[in-house]
Each structure stands twice: as C-alpha cells, then as structure tokens.
Nucleic acid binder design. Sequence first.
DNA 1: CTTAATTAAACCACTGTGAATAAATAAGTC
DNA 2: GACTTATTTATTCACAGTGGTTTAATTAAG
Lengths: 399, 399
Amino acid sequence: MSKGSNSSGLRRYNERVLISELRRLGLASKFELAKLANLTPQAVTRIIDDLEQADLVEQRGKVQRGLGQPSTMYALNPKGAFSIGVNAGRNDIQILLMDFCGNVLSKVAHEFTLPDPDFLIDKVVQGVNYLRSSLSLAHQQRIIGVGLAIPWFMGAWKSELNMSDELALRWNQFKPREELMKKIDLPVFVENDCSAAAVAELKLGCGNKINNFLYIFIGTFVGGGVVLHGELEAGVHGNAGALASMPVTASQLDTVPPVAGSFETLANRVSIYALRRHLNARGFSIDTISQLPLLLPAAQVALDEWIEDAIDAFSFVIFSATGVLDLEAIVLDANLPRDLVHEIVGKLAVRVNLLTPTGVLAPQVLSGSVGPDARAIGGAILPFYANFSPDKNVMLTGD
Amino acid sequence: MSKGSNSSGLRRYNERVLISELRRLGLASKFELAKLANLTPQAVTRIIDDLEQADLVEQRGKVQRGLGQPSTMYALNPKGAFSIGVNAGRNDIQILLMDFCGNVLSKVAHEFTLPDPDFLIDKVVQGVNYLRSSLSLAHQQRIIGVGLAIPWFMGAWKSELNMSDELALRWNQFKPREELMKKIDLPVFVENDCSAAAVAELKLGCGNKINNFLYIFIGTFVGGGVVLHGELEAGVHGNAGALASMPVTASQLDTVPPVAGSFETLANRVSIYALRRHLNARGFSIDTISQLPLLLPAAQVALDEWIEDAIDAFSFVIFSATGVLDLEAIVLDANLPRDLVHEIVGKLAVRVNLLTPTGVLAPQVLSGSVGPDARAIGGAILPFYANFSPDKNVMLTGD
DNA sequence: CTTAATTAAACCACTGTGAATAAATAAGTC
DNA sequence: GACTTATTTATTCACAGTGGTTTAATTAAG
C-alpha cells in the first residue's frame, strides 16, 4: 500500500521543504535554511540555485549580523507562480488572483440567491478568465491552477434554504471538478470550503506557530477543517470537519426540535441561519448579515442570547473534537463583524477553560487571522499546496 | 519546521516500506514487492538482500506461476526481532513476548486491586526479565524494546475507583517511561493503552484493509485510538482518542448526574464501571466482569437496558468523531464476552446507519479482531512500529 | 524458443565532506 | 587614524558516497 521513493522524489521533497520554510520565514539565507531543514549548506545551495533559475525564488539583498560574511537573503518570488481561488457559497461567490507569496492581486465577487450549478459554473469561468487576462502573457503562463472552495452537500439543506426538490437534486449530482475542467484549461483543485479556509489559516494565519488545530467557520451554516502536523486532514471522502451535523445537546432557544430519535445539530444552533432565525423570533429581521450592526443596540439582548447559546453548543463540539484528536488549538472565524468574532472567541475560551473535563487537555481558542475571505484565499492556496507543500505523497510519485 | 532528508533517510524509508508490505502480505517475491512499492526490482533486490543478511527477512521456497522462472518467496523472519509488550491496567497487568511476525510466544498476567506505581513497576520489571530469560542468549540480543500500554490520568478517576488522595497524587506524578528506563536496559516505548490497542488492530487486525478508523475499547472505563492513513495519530500530547471524557447527552438510566454546567461523559454511560453500577442498581452484584455470564439469564433485562443506553451514547460519539474526521470505520472491542461485543457492534451498526445525519458519510462499525489482549499486543508492537514502520519521520532523522 | 524472474555492471541523481574562498568585524601595530 | 592580520561566518568547489535506475545478460521454467 505505502510506496517507496527514489532520489528525484527525495529532491522534490527537499525542494518543497525549503519553499515552505521560505514561505514561513519570509526571508532567509541559505545557511539558515540549511540549519532549519537539517540539510547541508551544499544541498541547500544547489536547490535554492535551481529554484532561483526557475524564478520561484529570488535574492533580496544582504544582511550583516555581527561578524563574518553577510548573508545573502532569499525570498519566494511573488511573480514565480500565480493561482486563482474561488469560494462558491450559497449566496455569493468570490474569485481572486494570488501571487506566489500569498498576496491577493485582484478580486471579483457576486451575490445572488440560490444559484443553480450551471449558473455558478458560468460565473466561475467568467471570473477566472477575467482575472487571468489581467496578467501579462508571460505571467499567465505561470498560473498553476484554479482552487475551488465549495460546501459539500449543497442540496442537503433544501428545507432551510427553501430549495426546490429539482434544484436540490441537481446540486446533489453536481460534480464541480469535472464541470470546471471542461471549461477551464488549467488544473482544478477542489476542497470543501471550510477545509480550504483551514489551509488559508495554516499557510497565512496562525499556522506559522500552530500545527494541529480545528478550524471552524461560521457562515450561512457552519463548517470546519482539520489540520494535523501542519497538513490538511481532508478525511477519506474529503469530508473531515463536517461540523454542521455534529450532534449537540438541545438548545434553550427557539430552535426547531430535531425529529424523534435524532440529535440536535451544531448548524441548528451555531450559524448565521440560526442567528437570523433567533433574531426573527425576537422581532428583528435582516436580509443579509452585513445589516446586523444596524439593529444594534436594540437587538443586543437577542444577540447576547444567541451568543450564549452558541458558546454552549460550541464547547460541546470542542470537547468532542479535542477528545478525539488532542488538538493544540481551535481557530474560529466567521462571516460576522470582527468584534463579534472576538467576543465569541473570548467567551468561548473562558468556557472551555472552565469546563475542561478530566482526562482532556484544554486547547487554546483563537480567532482566525485571515478573516471572511479565508475560503477564497484557501481556494487560491490549494494549487500551491498541491504543487509545493512537503507532504509525504511528494516522495511517492517517482519521476 | 519540517525537515529535509538525504539518501540514508530515503533508504531507511524504502526498507520500512518493504518490511511493512511483507508484514501485510505474509509472503511475497521481490518482483511483487517492487510492483507494490513502486520501486525497481533492482532496488528491491538490494534492500531485501540486505535485510536477509540482517536476519530480518528470510527465503521461503519458490512458487511457480505459469511460465517463467519461479519466484523466490520471502517473508519476515520471526526470529529476526523480538519485543515485549505490557498492558498495565487498573486491576490487572499482562506482559507478553512477541516475535517479529507478531506471534505471541509467551505471556504472564496478574490481577490486583488499585496498585501503586512502585508495585506496578516492580511487576513489569519482573515480568519483562522473566520473559526475556525465556529466550536463547542470541535471541535476547534481538529484543528491540519494551512497549508499555497504560491509561493516562490514572489518578483522575479517584472517586470512581475509591482511590485515596495520596495515591491519586502519586499516580498523577508518575512518569512510567522514566521509571521503566531506570530499571530495564532496553528501549522503552509508552502509549496510551487504547492507542496501543489501535496499533494492534492496525497491524494485526482489520488494518490490513482499513486505513482510517477510530478504535474504541471498553475496559474499566472507555478509551480509544485514532488511525489515519495507516498511522497512529497520537495527538499533540499523546492523548488522542480520549473518549472517556467525550460529552454525551444525559442517560435514561441511573447515572450520577454531572455537576451543574458540566456535561455527561461517555465513560459514565459506556464502561464496565457503568455496566456494573447499573447491574448493582438492579440488584445484581459481581466482583469482576468475567462473572457476568453467571448472572444470566436473570440479569438479561438489566443488561439489555445498559446495552440500549450504551448504544445511544456511542452513536453520539461516533457521529461526533465522524463529523470531525470522516473515518472509514469504527472498530469496537471490549473486555466483555465475545458474543456481547458482537451484539453491541451489530446493534450499533444498525443505529448508525439509521441516524446518519445529512452531510456526514456513515462509517462501518466493526468488532475488533484482536480481542481483549489488544492493549498488551499493541504494546508489544510499539517497538516494531517505531523501528520499522514507514512514517514520514523516518526520513527526517539523518544518519 | 518463448516467457518471466532475477541479477550484474555501468550509470545517473542526489546529498555529504572537507578544503578553499569571500566578505565582513576585531584586534594589533606603526 | 591607516594598515595589517587574525577571526568569524557564509558560501562554494571538487570529489566521494549512497542509492535507485537502466540495459543487457542469465536462469529456470513451460
């Protein structure tokens, strides 16, 4: 089952290790890289020189540190590779162009209500082609792929979304990767939207310091991504971090009770859907979540009620996840105002530390540092991740 | 953070890949191994010849398959390496000697009530030395280590175990690896008992076919181990699979309710401790779980009540774990009569398929094929696992 | 004489070693 | 203060070592 490797696999692996270190550090000398990667300066020299030849890495002046010859610093060449990331949501889509250093160069977005798959694909193709043409021809050659972040089981929430049976069926049969590959002549990478966001957090956010975490994103519903040992753990069917359906205890609020014999689920308590439902029950109505601040301070009590209930449900899920996986941290982000995210994270951290059961070690609770665009950004990272991240599989594929 | 590698790392990795394949297949030719491991027959020849030289692999005759030269078959040499496995439980200890093929050569066991750490260490040292001396001097040189499977947080359940504060404190401060290394001049490997059992299941049980599963073992309490991509996932602090403290909904039975603001935990509903408590409440008393069959059929109703309640709690935990990790299977074993394990697994499988929420893919539910000794056997595998399993870290440590 | 497993010898790609080189600072000398 | 020399650190050169690959030869069957 597990595969052996050869020297070119080894080289590719070391190459990726150096690229990753360089991405993590921003700026480093060959010597530093050698120490960090446990390689000899020779090996690093050869690899970095080759990468420089291939325009993936560039010199960035020299730095003097005390005695000795100054270090020639290297960094990833932002123009060395490009990637296009797509987040396809239930109500909106964001498409962005990213350079090799992770900078977002440009971005397009649309909002809509309940798209059908064909419409969505069209929007993606249009956006990708538009962003693509914004680059010079030489740089267009360096786009290494399109990464799509999209919820799984889009058709599974048809009642919550007022979706027709027919549309739900089409969503269920929809194969985004295949459809996109038909219309775009670039490699296509697809991940669950929240797993993609977890990758964004791993590569551009707190992943610099933390290697094992559960990422949670509150959007229309709620989802997550799992990062173990600095690598995305996608699960057997790519469905890891499917937090929406996680069982939790019943809510104190006005939720629809689950069908008999079944469980209450996290999405029913923690999601923008649940928040809006509770606000509605308290007489506050909004069309999109961006209008939330307009309701304040009148709706503050209702909002606080929901926060309290959400924290309750969350702590349940966090202890479940920590029990199974013994994680360093929970990283929470949301399509909600920044200070609200911080408030939830703060209260959650207190609760988690208070209730940590015997036999479990409390994880840190952090707020995501990438923000609401994490999913699209994560999408853009997917092609980089597949081509330049040092996972074990790199070694396996021979020449 | 991630480290590069060199040719000796590569060689070690390939060596381990071949050993693992050979362990999985039992018997294979160089040519077969080459195809499976994605290596050239040449490379395999070199590696296997070296391994044969080192007595880790041996020829096992020739096999004719149609035309052509017959294949020379190879297998692991059972006398190539030995390992001693220990399971240190709250009431008993098993110590066994294992050969390189995974056969248990001999075994010693003791029962007791609430040992203190020193007593336990003494028992382990005695047992290890006894088993060690049962081998010829030449073979004694080939013992590659002692693997200890032991519950974490032994002192954390002092009220349930009627443990004195003083004893609980000593357990909490107990460092088994350090203590053992003082008294045994062999490498010592320590894992959580249920993680060790998961390794046993991975290497000697269903792991032949399944690479991603949550292993659950019902003992005095309940615990688990996580296997992802054919490797044990121990967690940041080695505490992955800490199912005992997993939050679940409240029981319908006679459990002690959790303190206010806290959760009910799995161990309080699914464990031999919980079973005995329920049997007690129904007027049936046993000293050890092996006496359970003596109570039947009188206690059948009480037993069925517990099973029903246990399945309820289990399905909660299984959906939590599957939501986070998207697993292929749940593998359940217990220190209970074999047919009772099968009954629980059967009923659990039905329940899981019935209740699988939208957005989650139901895992298989299987009964463990290693059985009640899984923890000690897993312990014995730990040294083999550390020395011969192709995990990524193999490559990292240079020469 | 075909087929398939296995091996031998030359080869290639990679990293490692140890000496040499380059570029700076620090210390000593006039 | 200018010049020299030693010291330190980064980097590179040439060669050696390891390990897998290639090609062709060998072996043992049908």
